[in-house]
Nucleic acid binder design. Structure first.
Lengths: 153, 153
DNA sequence: GTAAACTTTCAGAGATCTGTGAACACTTAG
DNA sequence: CTAAGTGTTCACAGATCTCTGAAAGTTTAC
């Protein structure tokens, strides 16, 4: 049972790492996502994955900055306890808006240099139009999900 | 002038490669995006970037599979001519739906193993709900953009 | 204050990824 | 069919990334 879960977690981590996430970050995230406990300590995760404390520290810092996990105060324990955040996935998706902004800015930059009437300028205008459209729609889309779940939950 | 454009292209490629795209793929894409010509041959791109034909072949294959660029028949030329596709960005965004599907499936898989009522099962259900929401909304969002631009363009 | 229990940092070994260059495969002209 | 011009594949060298392990830093208990 626990073995199956651990296996599913490692499989999921492998998939994620093929989509750009660092391997260790993906594995730690999967461990916290698939655990039957509410929280896990760095030591517990490290033992389960068989990796060093240094690797844990980096991955946990990463995930915390991404807003996927959080440190939970644990009275009577000297260890840091980590937990998957409630809105982790919506937060992660929102972070991708940063990429949309970068794309829009890069296109604008290019148009300035190429000239709006040139072939490159036209091409870059298409790009800018698409990304500014996405940038205007995505936040509302995510907001609608947040509203929906806060009502029913 | 051309130098500025080339510089903007390389800068853009560097940014993209920090967001998970392979470096060479990003550079070739940027070259085709920022060029003032309608099409470029593999040789032209290779010369401009100072890279080998082998690297070109791989990157062009990559971009073609992604749906970002296309081969253009060029009568009287033995070389392949490549061009940025009109709907490249919308296509690219649509491809990310594959990732959404994978996430949804991984969550379902986990719920089966963990049990829907368990802590892990609850956590995974949150994940599945979010990604199936995104999966149901994204295609419509992109379709709306396609419709909008085909009307005005 | 000191000691014990953890966590963080970081240099370097090892693993992984990427581009080159040459050999091979294709395609077209004649 | 042959030859020339291109495109593709692939082994390997070099570049890059990642994890370990140990030292330094931090926090808590007393």
């Amino acid at each position: 049972m626990t073995d199956d879960l651990t296996h599913a977690a490692e499989h999921f981590a492998l998939t994620l790492s093929q989509y750009g996430l660092q391997r260790m970050t993906a594995r730690v995230m999967a461990a916290l996502l698939f655990t039957q406990q509410d929280t896990m300590t760095a030591g517990e995760i490290g033992a389960q994955l068989g990796v060093s404390s240094g690797a844990m520290s980096g991955a946990l810092k990463n995930l915390t900055e991404l807003g996927m996990i959080e440190k939970v105060p644990a009275p009577g324990s000297r260890r840091d306890h980590f937990r998957f955040r409630d809105s982790a996935w919506a937060t992660l998706m929102s972070k991708q808006n940063t990429a949309l902004t970068l794309m829009t800015e890069a296109a604008d930059e290019g148009i300035k240099v190429a000239g709006a009437d040139s072939p490159a300028g036209q091409r870059l205008a298409d790009m800018r139009d698409f990304y500014s459209y996405m940038l205007s729609e995505m936040p509302a889309l995510i907001e609608r999900w947040r509203t929906r779940t806060s009502q029913s939950g």
